[in-house]
Computed example of a mutant assay.
Amino acid sequence: MKSIVKIIQAQPTQDGAGVKLFRSLGTHLLPELNPFLMLDEIRADEASDYLAGFPSHPHRGFETVTIMLDGKMRHRDSRGNEGVIESGGVQWMTAGSGIVHSEMPEQSEGRLWGFQLWVNLPAEHKMMSPRYQDIKAAEIPVVNFPGAQVRVMAGTVHNHTGPVTDIVTRPTLLDVHLDGELNLTLPPRTLLYVYEGALTIGEQTARAQQLAVLSEESSLTMTGNAKALVFGADVLNEPIARHGPFVMNTREQLMRAFEDYQSGQFG
């Protein structure tokens, strides 16, 4: 059975044009756990904390996953994609060889609550063509258990397969609403982020705004009253060369990414 190896408390920070958020993966406490590179939670009731948004910025060599619980964000990118991510929706963007995009609030008041997860690409796929999957809440299957409800965004739970497809790291991405006990089969590399309440795995308890790194066994049993993101994928045993919005395998590739972006070759 999976157990909790480490618990990380999310740290307050700012990103974009000053958006206030909480970062649990991608800090000095846990810089990355390949293929997972970063996890941010945005939870703000005051518009001044999020209105500046995330103006146009580049990415290369990895994927961004945006999950909205409450509110609306508009995505635009240099490939001509545009769409609004609304409550319950998810967007999986593969930056690949390079893309420039913006993510801006589509609201001027009310709560904005969601997450962004960064997922690495294997070396052989880092320069793949960029692409974009925009999934509405109604397209996400919901699996009901006696002690939980599970929204399956990617991966398969009890023969229900999520709508995010053709991702090379074969991810599992679940939104779990727990009210009792739940048993799941998950990839060896799995993390869990509690965003409401508390849950127990084995002898340890993870609480709201805590990231739990899980051991490599396949079976997970959790109990409690909580809401949590569960995400797993294939392990990438490859070097990481990372700076800002670019994630490559070598310093030379990283420098090339900056050069290509500055010369207008992205998107």
Rank of each mutant, 00 (worst) to 15 (best):
S56N: 13
E32T: 12
S24C: 15
L25K: 08
G147C: 06
T27K: 04
R256T: 15
S108Y: 13
L254D: 06
L112C: 03
L191Y: 02
T200W: 00
S215T: 15
L211I: 10
A148M: 09
V164C: 04
F22R: 15
F258L: 12
F246L: 07
L199H: 03
H125P: 01
A47C: 05
Q209C: 09
M127D: 11
H125V: 10
I7C: 01
F246A: 02
K126M: 05
Y195V: 10
A137Y: 03
T94Y: 01
L254N: 00
G180F: 05
D70Y: 10
A212R: 07
V119G: 03
R60E: 07
G98R: 08
T156W: 00
H28G: 02
G83C: 05
L51C: 05
R207K: 15
Q265F: 10
V157N: 02
A47Q: 08
E32D: 12
V164G: 03
T66V: 10
G89H: 00
V176K: 00
A148K: 10
V168P: 14
A138L: 02
A206M: 06
G110W: 10
F246P: 03
V194I: 15
E196K: 14
N81R: 02
K72T: 08
L220H: 02
V90H: 02
V84H: 06
A137K: 13
Q265H: 14
F231T: 07
P146A: 05
P12T: 11
M255H: 11
K20A: 12
R79D: 03
R189K: 14
P58I: 11
G83W: 01
R111N: 10
G18T: 04
V90M: 14
Q9M: 04
I99P: 04
